[in-house]
Design a binder for these strands. Sequence first.
DNA 1: GCGTATTGCTACAAATAATGTAGCGTACTG
DNA 2: CAGTACGCTACATTATTTGTAGCAATACGC
Lengths: 106, 106
Amino acid sequence: MAKQAASGKVRGSRTGRPVMALLDLLGRRWSLRILWELRDAPLTSRGLRTACDDASPTVLQARLTELREAGFVELGDGGGYGLTALGRDLCATFMPLHRFAERWKK
Amino acid sequence: MAKQAASGKVRGSRTGRPVMALLDLLGRRWSLRILWELRDAPLTSRGLRTACDDASPTVLQARLTELREAGFVELGDGGGYGLTALGRDLCATFMPLHRFAERWKK
DNA sequence: GCGTATTGCTACAAATAATGTAGCGTACTG
DNA sequence: CAGTACGCTACATTATTTGTAGCAATACGC
């Protein structure tokens, strides 16, 4: 197919440009939403599911694994998913989106 | 299913919070990438397709329509897709992502 | 101990979306 | 008219998402 790198690990990275891999990772369903919901406090897997309009645990778990491998999210030892330092940085990038969205709803 | 608002127009907007609708729109395949590729110059539909690793015209066209309805992208009268003023604002929000990605590639 | 409730996580069939290829109709150029 | 590029669509194959149910592990009160 047109995509899928040889490794099968991250799509959209054939050019080797990290932005593409990042855009692809964030461009999967629920990725952005998950980061957004964790923005200011960790959540349990079920809490996260509730926050995400009861998305199916299958995708949520898949995204969570991807985001963990990417180093944006981590599973605390007491349970509950939270952002890593890197994840918080990434999330901070998206914060202006909130204001933008309010302006956009027209 | 767990999502889909009554109108069927925009998913993830059940709460009425515009951010959710935005996160959902941007969280579809190729949405972010399209905005990214148009970041500094308009492209023809075929040029955009080439820029997007030869993604299938079916999705590209679908995303393009959605992004146009959202007011982020427009089709110039001489042909070629470009960002609207609003689209440029949105895209500007994502620009720090480039630097972040470089730092992230570890 | 036993029940109950929570945690993170998985199976699996059905529904939905994306892919790849081909091609349409409309222009514009020579 | 022949060649080319545009935006866009059909359609069968493949991949992803959905929704529901449930697992093993860990904790609680009793």
